[in-house]
Design a protein around this nucleic acid. Sequence first.
DNA 1: CTGAAAGCGCTTACAG
DNA 2: CTGAAAGCGCTTACAG
Lengths: 340, 340
Amino acid sequence: MATTIKDIADKAGVSISTVSLVLNQKGYVAPVTKKKIQTIINDLNYRPLHSARKLATRQTGNFGFILWEGHFSEVEMFYSQVFLGMEYAARKNDYYILLTTVREGFDPREDLPRFLRYKDVDGVALAGRVPEPLIRYLDHQQIPFVLIDYEIPGENFNCIKIDNYNGAFRAVENLILSGRKHIAFVGGTFFHPSIKERYRGYREALEKHGLNHNNGNGYSYCENIETSRSIGEKGIMQLLEKYPEIDAIFSCNDTTALGVISGVHRMKKKIPQDIALFGFDDIPTAEFSTPKLSTIRVPKLEIGKEAYKLLYELIQHPKMAPQTRIISVDTVIRETSSSE
Amino acid sequence: MATTIKDIADKAGVSISTVSLVLNQKGYVAPVTKKKIQTIINDLNYRPLHSARKLATRQTGNFGFILWEGHFSEVEMFYSQVFLGMEYAARKNDYYILLTTVREGFDPREDLPRFLRYKDVDGVALAGRVPEPLIRYLDHQQIPFVLIDYEIPGENFNCIKIDNYNGAFRAVENLILSGRKHIAFVGGTFFHPSIKERYRGYREALEKHGLNHNNGNGYSYCENIETSRSIGEKGIMQLLEKYPEIDAIFSCNDTTALGVISGVHRMKKKIPQDIALFGFDDIPTAEFSTPKLSTIRVPKLEIGKEAYKLLYELIQHPKMAPQTRIISVDTVIRETSSSE
DNA sequence: CTGAAAGCGCTTACAG
DNA sequence: CTGAAAGCGCTTACAG
């Protein structure tokens, strides 16, 4: 049927060991033999059978990519892009990325993703907020993993982080420098460390410029649930009710910002004339809202790529100390924050 | 290390053959032995090693899922949902779905997805419009595949189709029954058979109700490029320029419809007061546009599930004749089509 | 009803 | 520099 290593060996008049060596670029093979074997491999378009190779090496050649069901299904295109970044990076080493979701009430004894149940991955990437029991499970099973845009306070796990603090700081400073004085924060889930950091950036930017109303709390609406359009809409409406002087908003992410836009409109105010707005993430939709959303661009593909690289290093050097890699962000000025 | 079939056999005092039989529910094993083995498997939480099993059976346990790069990266959440549907379905048989993208100028000799290069899948699902050379390649290599929401005219391949015709027909009829008389069509890529069918539905609904202006062509703007917001915006603006009497629009899909919304607004008309609008697909964003988009809901998870099932049947029964399965759609009335 | 044996296609010490 | 051999963990006829 399909051509095997034996076929190559026969054709080249060598043993399969030698073929294997050139396949894996290991040991030392005489240049002539190597060349001959290479040629035959190319001619026959031979590829070693994954499962055979994996069985022999005891590796799987797979990485898992896990996210909450909600994060995948919602308007949120964020993590899909991160996945794509990983997938691109994985092509180089012929790794496969197995994408799956995990439901809200996740229980490791019940609904472990099947690639974990079967130990079919060499490592896994966890995107965004994921159930802590899942993280504990991986840690306990000593399965290499990296957190993406998430962390467990007090724990030192491998992770890829976004430069949330600086991004937020810059967004808010941008609003301030364009003359805004009463800048609100609208956000959700302080469970999520990223949101927390963005909030910190917001506060410190205000502080730097002496704009800390309300005892340094600014005007903030933070509902401790998953971020969404609806909390954006609801949040800004409540804030405007109470503080009609608000003239700018920094929203914890773009999805929420889109809700903020409707909220502001419903309160009969204009963006950016009456109120300027900055989001965070630069999701694809940000470019298509009316008015177009100014935001902090998070390089999603880059994050995925970095996650892959870290994971790959991790399995090469199992003893590597846990590390955090921070991905920097860019400011994207569109319509919601233009000065006039 | 990890527990193997040998461990189970030893503990149960039987041969590995017997363990294998109960693992695969094959042959006949005495109820007592079977029970004993089962218990031990559970106690030790044993799972057969994928690669070993795959090597022995000559199957891969994987299906591929391929789409255009553009379809994955854009605002388009459509095919991601289809993928998720497949992923859900695949859990039952412990199949893995390997998701990858393929670039515009795809050439099978150069950038074959790695799971195809390595023959690491038992079959593949192709989502939406994909490069024809890819389809030819699969067909030629006799790799089972199913087209999702796409087809090659004149060819009889396995495919999962959306009931585009009836969906479009119903959308347009809905507009007509709410009193609209001048109904435009805005769309793109007639390469894509789905769009073609939707257009046909549009025309026949008009015809049925005697509304066939312009010799039965209605008012239509169809630019032969990939659908997008921008063609929606541009399309309706051009049409309104020419036919100010237009009082309703059926858009070939939601993404385009979102562009239509901006276009209508830029022409200083109101939706739905001046102009009613229907989309197609029910992408997540449809619910969040202002005003909220009326549309035809395509059950995306369902499509993925159906694609999986067909693929699975295909590998069980390799001689199966190619077939088409049609997934029906629902009408979702939101704000853009309300009578007033 | 169950076991011994061959085989799936590769990798990796180990000799030489 | 290269080959013979063992082994990776499973499945599957084939006997009995």
